[in-house]
Every structure is written in structure tokens, then in C-alpha cells.
Design a protein around this nucleic acid. Sequence first.
DNA 1: TTGTATGCGTTATCAA
DNA 2: TTGATAACGCATACAA
Lengths: 343, 343
Amino acid sequence: MAEKFVSASDVARVAGVSRSAVSRTFTEGASVAPKTRARVMKAAEELGYRVNLLARTLHKERSDLVGLVGANLSNPYISAQVDALTAALYDNGLQCMLLNLARAQDDIENALAKLLEYRVRTVVLLSGAVPDTLMRLAAANGTRLVLINRPLPENIGLVDQIEADSAAGGALAARRLLAAGCSNVAVVLSESRTSAKLARAEAFIAVMEQHHVPITQWSQGRNTYETGIEAARGLLAKPGIDGIFGVTDEIALGVMNTARHELGLSVPNDVSVIGFDDAPISDWSSHQLTTIRQSLSSLTSATLKAITGPANAPCSHHFIPVSLVERRSVRSVEPPHSDAGGA
Amino acid sequence: MAEKFVSASDVARVAGVSRSAVSRTFTEGASVAPKTRARVMKAAEELGYRVNLLARTLHKERSDLVGLVGANLSNPYISAQVDALTAALYDNGLQCMLLNLARAQDDIENALAKLLEYRVRTVVLLSGAVPDTLMRLAAANGTRLVLINRPLPENIGLVDQIEADSAAGGALAARRLLAAGCSNVAVVLSESRTSAKLARAEAFIAVMEQHHVPITQWSQGRNTYETGIEAARGLLAKPGIDGIFGVTDEIALGVMNTARHELGLSVPNDVSVIGFDDAPISDWSSHQLTTIRQSLSSLTSATLKAITGPANAPCSHHFIPVSLVERRSVRSVEPPHSDAGGA
DNA sequence: TTGTATGCGTTATCAA
DNA sequence: TTGATAACGCATACAA
């Protein structure tokens, strides 16, 4: 019921030893007599003592703290990402400081500053733009930056990049719609147009243009399910479009559900829909969304490797492979290769 | 590009002032000459200096750190909870340390210990059992505990309890199924049987027994979508059961989707399904799950109030009201009150 | 193996 | 307003 935190001095007093003895008892690989250790442990247990990691970190060169900055945490794929990553961190004895930029997407510099104030060893960016100033700030304090799915033109300081192969994924999506016989397609993304998602869209568009397929671009709102709904309403109000690529599963799910349940369209017979991510719920029997998978476990393990590596490890750039997951939102059979023009 | 973090002494040297002057510049409400402040700020900017919150907290009595321990973070309701809560914390200048007990549900004491090592001001428990030892440990260090949806028999130390009214919710679900004319029902929960979820089930059962409706209890596996799938397969293999209550939306969604898309049953015509939480995806047009809502915003604001309150505030116990959200997974029309016996 | 003394970066107290 | 100095809780070099 004490008001203050218990300190090593308190324990030392109760155990009848010096502060150093207590410190050594809780320091990995320090030499302390078994008998002393036992006395200390007993007193510590009694008082509810825990080492003050703030003080310890003050003294050491490196902390156990990893900063994680994200947004849109209830997005099905992001939440799976956060789940996997935080679990992995915990298993590796690392602590995670989570900053959610929900209402302040552009507040990222402020977020990084806060994290630096806690002397995190590494900052993982799941979301938000990455201006140069950010990298400079991190570099000036010797903090590593891990960028997830936010490709960077140039690389200042200690930054590890981990990204799914957006270009390959976008192309994969395009070719799949082509194979389904789509002849009038659309791509939908948010208006924020993050570089990774932009790359997905651009690769998709490139392939389509190469095949002379007319393509509409829908780029409004935030990166959410609601954006998918709006897109479907706008895009499918009148017949014509027979294939849609959502740069995110969440968006694609919004498109597909709205087509099916609000517009009374058949997916995939009237319109094929394909997403990107392979979020867990895309596999639910209520959805069965065909999508481009970016392996979550590869992404997590690559991230963890970057975090746990030596502080002076060279910058790394890791590409996560991408693959088509065939489900039921894209027509499977290819019409006998006529160019059956959708009006 | 410096290797070490920049300290106040560094800034003082460059600015040609004392450490104290630097400290005062970054301390709320300290008196420092505008001219001095300007010099300090300039030097700080130049060097990329950030206050070391570790050191500051070491010196102060209270930190900005809030510990959040959870599990199953990709659960649609939990992730919404985490999203809302972390956003609110960030907006209030509080830092959040997130511990994910994914692989080690029973590791909660260890988690709390880690959090105490960082001298968090408050620990919020979203998941996990709450043994007495836990509360004693927190109490011994003067750390507040905020318990979300984990009712407690007795209250040791500084703990705030925030919970949805499980009993009312369970009863609401039962009465809704009764109104739909269900005459042979089941309730499905995980085998972990957390007290909050158990309370939902028990209230449901109580009402059903009161109306002499036969009731099956399915209690296996973890608290996931897959458990819902298994339950549907087990419960609906042969006809009979015409109403199912999933103690969690995620479970209910598993039940409903499996009934519809794997078992070829009509929900709600063959079987009514009702959930608990009102997760965002329950409202998706692909689901339209009737459910019991526990208001996320009430829950978040109550939690925030508990966190931001004075350190010596008395323990609070807050009940979040609960309400029925009518959608399309429960039959709407009531048969003309015969006791139409399901097999 | 143990205790003493020093430093980590900060804030608060005190005298100037 | 400013600078020197003493904590804060810990780890460690050093001496015993």
C-alpha cells in the first residue's frame, strides 16, 4: 500500500546489505553470493520491488524500448500487423510504445520527438509520411528507423526499409482481372495516396494501359471501408465497369459488399473485385475476397530482425514477396478470348 | 549523425549558459529570460536535443506512461478499443506502452512487473485474469489499475473497474431471441470463460430457464472466429437449434457465416444469431449482425477519466450501459405466441 | 564476494 | 533571472 515506488535502497535496508548487492542481484551476469542473493530476493519479494528501468536505461547505452507509430489501427490488416508485431516484441523481451496518430496524421514529427524523449532504441513507422526532417532528427540522436511499406527516395541516416513488392502486386492484380476477361476497370485508393499504395495503383494502371484497357481512377476520402462504399456507389451506378482493384483489402471489401448487398450486383459475375493485403477477414466465408497477399509473418520477422540487430548494422532494404490468393470475388473462367466489350 | 543522445549539458555548452538554464527552458512554467530562452532554443534545434524523459521521470513523482495489456488484438472489437484508447491517450499527451500477451495469456504477472519497471502511472487491463497477487503488486508500488470488462470479487488497492453491464446485455439477448420465437437455443463461449463473458452467458441462461426453453452450452477453444465456426458445425449439424447467442461478435460472426455459407442455412429464417459488442464489422452489409452494443465511446471516456484523474482519487466502478442493436440476423416477426416446439 | 564512490540527465532548492 | 548543487535510482570501476 506504499505511496512511493520501492527502490533498491529500501530493499538493501531490509535485507541488511548494500545497495550494490541489490543491484548485482538483479543484473544479468553479476557476481553475488548465493546466500546474499537469497536474502535480497526475499526482501524484494516482500516489498514488491522492481528494478527501475528508467534509471537503468539512463545508465546504459541502449534501451529495450521500441516505438511503434501507426494510425487506422482498426483496419483489419493493420490490426493483424500490430498484433503480430507486439506479440513478437513481447516474446523477445522488448517493450513497445505505441503512438496512434489517428486524429493527427501529420503530427508524425511530434510523435517521433516524443519517442526520442523516451530514448527508444528503434522507431517503427507503420503509417504516416516520412519527411527528411524526420530522418535527420532520428539520425541526430542515433536512433534507428524502420519503415514499413513506405518506400523512400533517398536514405539519410540509419533506416531499414521493409516493403511488400507493390509493383509486382499491382501487376498481379491487373493480370488476374485481365485473365477474368475484364475490359473496363477501375482502381480505388484514398486521397492521401501514400507512396506504397500509389505504387500498387500505378503498376496496375501500367499493365492495363499496356493492354489498352480503359481505366478509371477513384481517389477520394481516407483509407477506409467507407471509401470503398463510396467508390462502389460512384463507379457502379451505371453499368460498364467489370473489374475493380482496391489498393487495400478494407477498401476492396467496401466495394464488394456494396456491389453485392446494396447495388444488387453479383460479384464476380457482374463485376470482379480484387484487393491487396490478405487481411484475415478476407478469407471469411462471408467475403472470400481474391487478393494479393503480403505475408504477415515475413513482414513481422523482417521487422524483428531489423530491430534486434546490432545498433550499428548497415541499413537494410527488404522486399516481402507478394502472391495472388485465389478466392471467389474474381471470375475464374476466362471467356474464349473475345474482347466482349462492356458498354 | 551523432552516436549518442544529445544532453542538456551539450546544449548548455553550445548556448553558453548553464544546464539549469536549459532545463528551465524546457520546463513548463519556469522563469527564464526571453533572450536566454531564445539562445537555448537555437542551440537545441541545432543539435537535435530532446528532453530525456527517463531522467525527468526519475526525478518526478509521476510519469506520462500508461501501460496497456491486452491479447487477441486483431479481434474486431478489441482492435477498435485499442484504436480509440491509444488515440485518446495521444491526444491527452499520455504515452502508451502496449503489451500483447498473445502467446502467454497467463503471463500477466510478468507483464505487470515489466510495466512497473518502467514506472507507469497506470496499468489498463484489457485482457487476462486478475489474480490477487497482481493487485497487491500494483498496490505495493502505488500504481493504479484500470480493469476493463473484468469484474472482480473484491477490491484490493487502487483499482478502477469499468465494465459493460453484462447481465443486462445477456438478458437483452435472451429476450430478443424469445421474441423471435426461438424455442431451442444455444450459447457459445470460449473455454477460458472470463468472468465478464461468463456473466453474459449466465444472464442469458437465466432468462431462458425462466421461460423453460431448452438451452445448450458450447464452451470450447479460444475466444476467436474459429470457435464460432466449430460451434456452428457442432450445434447445427442436425436441425433443432433455432437461436444462438455468441458472447462476442467475433464468435457470433463465425457462427453466422458458417451457418449461411457452409451449412446452407438461412439466418435468420432457419436460425437466429445474436452477438455482443457491436464491433464495426458487424454493421457491414455482408453481416448485419444483430447484437448487444457496449458503447465504445463511453468505455473510452470512462477509461480516460480514470487515467487522468488525480493519483489519489478514490476507486471507481463504472458500468457502461448496454443496448440492443437491431439488424438482420434475428427473425423480426414474432409468431402468434404459440409455443411452436422445435424438435 | 562485498561495499564505497562516481556518473547517467534531469529537476528543484538555494544563494547570488 | 541565473548558476551551483543536491537529489532521483541505478550500474560499475575500484578498493577492500
